[in-house]
Nucleic acid binder design. Structure first.
Length: 648
RNA sequence: GGGCCCGUAGCUCAGCCAGGAUAGAGCGCCGGCCUCCUAAGCCGGUGGUCGGGGGUUCAAAUCCCCCCGGGCCCGCCA
């Protein structure tokens, strides 16, 4: 059995055999071999390369005999006809044989085979939670990065053969939702009605009311305390917000908040009553949150992102799940009182359950000299805290879906919180869950010079960026296809826009802080989603003009030279590359691979005509190669949410 | 104050976790290529003290230590 997984194509089969063979002979982990067996820096060293001497010298095995054993293994599986092995300066270099590989590929294509990620031999159940934006404002580009990454991860894991359950956590119990609700309560209007008056999507109406209410409260409180700086900030935010909505509604919120004796207290009271499930707060809050969610769903569906379940934070409380968790916590040996409040003694958890447990210690990294206070579970007034509810939610994710692994796609700013979550699970005896909870962290998207702020109402909405991208791609598509149907032009332009934005958010490494530059994001040239779509369309165009391909008439020798051979081998790496990208939760690796493949294809495209090739066996071979490239690009693009376009 | 992430070409980044074969792309800039499968393309040129300094190693962009710059996190907020 191999960690590479199953695939019918010769490259995947050779890869799989090499990983098993090297792992056996050298006595090292298959995963490690998989990581290191890669294309060498230069073509002349072959198609794949592995630093044998590094391990052979360590384990005292003779390098030559390692290569011989591996060669024997390939021979047993009848794979030596596809690849040569050579030992060169301490590296095991693999050279694929173009003609025999091509012959096999033609056979596969003739039988209807399509490129896809190598299939895992032991499928797991994954839960991927992503986006989970607070329902108080439209989705902005920060959420878009989260949604792009989360959705791509889900698609990749699913294609790899795992069972994947995708979830959105609705934080409706926070202060922010309560603030927005207070605003609507003062207005006495429903979010939907206000959206109609403002002629915007419901999430924009909620966002505006939230920001006006929040800053009104800030202004009132700051004035009372004599905090001039906060007051100035709030007033300037209000001045901007006044321009963005109906005057009378603006005034009504502002004066309504001003007449409250204790605005902060009103918000707290609203939160408390909501947690208890009391009317009318229960209906009011839900109505506001639902309006925002309605806007989210519209945006997400345009963005190509979908969810299997929407989990309300409040349901966790109302169903008694949070209360039961608190009961469990009280019985835990790590339960303690901190400043009089019920808490978990996390410093002790680190000493006793992390430091003393090798597996836990290697999987849950505690920073050196790390100082962490006990985690408070409940306020003195008896209401619960976010983290407590999050512990309950984590358990729900594991239980409800029967998950082996839960992946939380959450910003890097939540690292400490996610660590506390894992430590809390350990404290409550959920060791397996703690070890299989993955915080997929990524750096936030910043605006040039500052971070986005929904409180100040400063953010770049995803809808706006998509609209801008659409305008640009519409002009280009129209220009290139002057006689095309309007409906087709709009549809195509829209897919190009989504492809551009999604790819731009997925391609950079997730730990690089992304400073938002809409201009760059909408550059449709190389290194972009539209570049992939364009390349796909070019390949498809050749095939449409070529017509029927007789794969069995194709000449295998034709793909045994130069660019054609390299292109074929590179395309055949897709099953393995996409499999590894899924295992590593690394969409950016797949993105880089697709760009490289597209580059190679475009270079070949210039100099080697397909449909004008006079010799039929040669032409069919070239067309088969184009088929392989097109379908490989298409499969990869689908995994990243960049829709392949037959024409553009 | 403590901790974490980032720093590679004018700009945006890959390579770092798992040290090894002449540090790679793209954008930009300069110069070429559309009677021929879509020029969102191709070809050529330009461009690097891998933030700085020590150390480990036969070998360091990669590992360790110190420093500098930018960001983030340390609540009975979410």
């Amino acid at each position: 059995m191999s960690v590479v997984g199953r695939g019918k194509d010769p490259v995947t089969r050779v890869y799989s055999a090499l990983v098993e063979g090297l792992s056996d002979v050298l006595g090292i982990d298959q995963v490690q071999v998989f990581r290191l067996l890669q294309p060498p820096p230069r073509r002349e060293y072959g198609d794949l390369s592995f630093p044998v001497m590094r391990f052979a010298s360590k384990s005292g095995v003779d390098v030559e005999s390692v290569v011989e054993s591996v060669r024997g293994m390939l021979w047993e599986r009848n794979l030596l006809r596809f690849a040569d092995l050579r030992l060169e300066s301490g590296f095991l270099n693999v050279y694929f044989k173009g003609e025999d590989v091509a012959d096999e590929v033609f056979r596969l294509l003739a039988s209807g085979w399509k490129p896809s990620p190598a299939q895992v031999e032991e499928p797991k159940v994954y839960v991927v939670e992503h986006t989970s934006a607070n329902p108080i404002h439209p989705l902005h580009l920060g959420h878009a990065r989260n949604a792009s990454l989360g959705d791509s991860l889900a698609r990749m894991l699913r294609a790899r053969g795992h069972k994947v359950n995708v979830r959105f956590y609705i934080n409706d119990m926070g202060r922010q939702v309560a603030v927005a609700t207070l605003g609507f309560k003062i207005l006495g209007v429903s979010p939907e009605d206000l959206a109609r008056v403002m002629d915007v999507k419901p999430d924009y109406a909620v966002g505006w009311v939230y920001a006006v209410t929040h800053n009104s409260i800030d202004a009132v409180e700051a004035r009372r305390k004599g905090d001039t700086r906060t007051l100035d900030d709030a007033l300037s935010a209000l001045a901007r917000l006044k321009e963005k909505g109906p005057q009378d509604y603006f005034e009504k919120i502002l004066s309504g908040v001003s007449t409250l004796r204790d605005p902060e207290g009103a918000v707290s009271e609203l939160m408390k009553r909501y947690e208890e499930g009391l009317e009318p707060e229960k209906s009011l809050v839900r109505r506001v949150a639902k309006a925002a969610l309605e806007g989210f769903k519209e945006t997400l569906s345009r963005f190509g992102v979908s969810f299997d379940s929407w989990d309300w934070e409040s349901d966790l409380s109302w169903s008694g799940m949070v209360a039961r968790l608190l009961e469990e916590a009280r019985k835990s040996p790590y339960f303690t009182l901190h400043k009089g409040a019920p808490a978990l003694d996390l410093p002790r958890v680190i000493r006793e359950l992390v430091e003393a447990d090798t597996e836990v210690k290697t999987k849950i990294k505690i920073p050196r000299g790390f100082d962490i206070p006990p985690l408070i579970l409940m306020r003195s007034d008896g209401t619960t805290l976010y983290t407590t509810r999050d512990i309950a939610y984590t358990l729900l994710k594991f239980r409800e879906a029967g998950a082996d692994i839960v992946v939380n796609v959450i910003g890097a700013d939540q690292r400490l919180a996610q660590l506390q979550l894992k430590l809390s699970l350990l404290a409550l005896g959920y060791r397996k869950e703690a070890l299989n909870l993955v915080h997929y962290d990524y750096e936030i998207v910043r605006l040039p010079g500052r971070r986005m702020s929904s409180r100040r109402g400063e953010y770049v909405a995803l809808d706006e960026v998509l609209e801008e991208a659409f305008q640009r791609s519409y002009r280009e598509v129209k220009e290139r296809n002057p006689s095309a149907r309007e409906e087709w032009v709009r549809d195509t332009a829209w897919k190009v826009a989504v492809g551009a934005v999604r790819f731009a958010l997925e391609q950079p490494g997730r730990l690089k802080p992304v400073t938002l530059d809409v201009e760059k994001m909408l550059n449709f040239r190389e290194n972009s989603g539209p570049y992939l779509q364009y390349t796909y369309a070019r390949a498809n165009n050749i095939l449409e003009k070529h017509g029927h391909i007789d794969f069995l008439k194709a000449l295998p020798q034709a793909l045994d030279e130069g660019l054609r051979r390299d292109l074929m081998v590179e395309a055949l790496r897709f099953p393995v590359v996409s499999a590894k990208a899924a295992d590593d939760l690394a969409p950016e690796d797949l993105a880089s691979y697709l760009l490289r493949l597209a580059d190679m294809f475009n270079k070949w495209y210039e100099k080697d005509p397909v449909i004008h090739e006079p010799e039929e066996p040669l032409r069919h071979a070239k067309a088969a190669l184009v088929t392989l490239i097109r379908d490989t690009l298409g499969a990869g693009m689908n995994l990243l949410g960049v829709e392949p376009l037959p024409r553009m």
